[in-house]
């Protein structure tokens, strides 16, 4: 009973803190929209418009009202799903983003799976074999992943695996040939093509995503490896690990059943952060691979001062991090009884 009440209070507290964060985020995006040195009216009416037309649009946008009223107008627009229109594409911003975001989520998810599947076992191994040759090799390998700029590995990767060896597809999400062949259901090309039974397209998409995803995965695995190694080193010296050894468990059982089980909470945090970083900042690799994703959309919008697009992108990045935080919090509770 008391436990339930505690749970309720915890959930309420968390809900409240999410709301506060969300509100802060909305203020932030609103302020970004107002302080940027671009003139939203001029962007709409064009350079040659008369003063009269200019003033009409000025009032239509509510720019003559006090700031706090403008903020509530902004909130009301958001609530009705109106995120404004992009100057660059002339389409509703949200429509553009819903088109670009799946491409990035697909790439980032693929990449984080590779990064975690590579980084976590390597980190555990480096910790177990601390100061032996395995540890040194792993550390050099991960340091390389950390220090080579992604746009450079991207180009080298394209040169080697696409141009020379022909193992993977080149730039874009699929071959030019297939573009438009698969109906856009979810925006996730791998899913859409599989659902439609278009296995040629699926294969092409897979060949195109594998290289950028592997490179991004390698670069985030560098971070994951180093963190996993240090988390594991902390645990391996704990007394409960000795207890497990005394019970007669082999080293492997001790490491995975006991020590590793205790770093899951920390791992969730850093993998979630690495995933967030991939979702928000895969701009370089998206540019190199001509990947029509979120990073590219955001940078292009920034470059020409497309404020509605920028504000919405910032909002989305914020939402992504809030969501990842909620998921991490839930996983904490699953993995660590002390947080329940």
């Amino acid at each position: 009973m008391t436990l339930n009440r505690q749970h309720m209070r915890g959930a309420l507290g968390q809900g409240a803190s999410i709301l506060v964060t969300l509100f802060g985020l909305l203020i932030l995006t609103f302020v970004i929209g107002r302080i940027m040195p671009t003139d939203p009216v001029r962007a709409i009416v064009g350079e040659d418009a008369t003063q009269e037309v200019y003033m009409n649009v000025y009032q239509e946008l509510g720019l003559d009202k006090p700031m706090w009223q403008q903020f509530f107008l902004y909130l009301r627009d958001l609530a009705t799903g109106d995120f404004g229109t992009s100057i660059r594409t002339g389409k509703p911003v949200i429509q553009d983003i819903l088109h670009a975001l799946p491409a990035t989520i697909e790439l980032a998810t693929f990449a984080i799976i590779i990064g975690a599947c590579l980084g976590v076992p390597l980190g555990v191994m480096a910790a177990v074999k601390k100061d032996r040759w395995q540890d040194h090799v792993i550390r050099v390998f991960s340091l390389m992943g950390h220090s080579m700029p992604i746009f450079w590995t991207g180009m080298i990767g394209l040169l080697v695996f696409y141009a020379s060896l022909g193992w993977v597809g080149g730039s874009g999400r699929m071959s030019q040939f297939y573009i438009g062949m698969v109906p856009d259901r979810t925006g996730f090309l791998l899913i859409d093509s599989a659902v439609a039974g278009q296995w040629d397209v699926f294969r092409s998409a897979l060949r195109h995503i594998i290289l950028p995803a592997a490179l991004l995965g390698y670069s985030s695995s560098a971070y994951i490896t180093r963190m996993t190694r240090s988390f594991m080193l902390d645990q391996i010296n704990q007394e409960y690990v000795t207890t497990a050894r005394v019970k007669g468990l082999s080293q492997r059982q001790t490491i995975w059943r006991h020590a590793f089980a205790n770093i899951r909470v920390q791992l969730v945090t850093i993998v979630a952060l690495a995933y967030g970083a991939l979702l928000e900042g895969a701009v370089l690799i998206e540019t190199v691979f001509a990947w029509p994703g979120f990073g590219q959309y955001l940078t292009s919008s920034l470059r020409i001062g497309d404020m509605n697009a920028v504000m919405t992108c910032v909002l989305i990045v914020g939402l992504i991090f809030i969501t990842l935080n909620i998921i991490s919090d839930i996983l904490y509770r699953v993995f660590d009884p002390r947080t329940r």
Binding site: Y240, T242, T243, A244, G248, A261, N262, F335, R338
Partner: peptide
Amino acid sequence: MLELRGQRMSMILQDPKFSLNPIQRCGLQ
């Protein structure tokens, strides 16, 4: 040694605060 440890020779450690795995139920351990 794996056969011996826990079955024929074992060891009681100093502080249960550290020598029990914090995220596993006592009974399962």
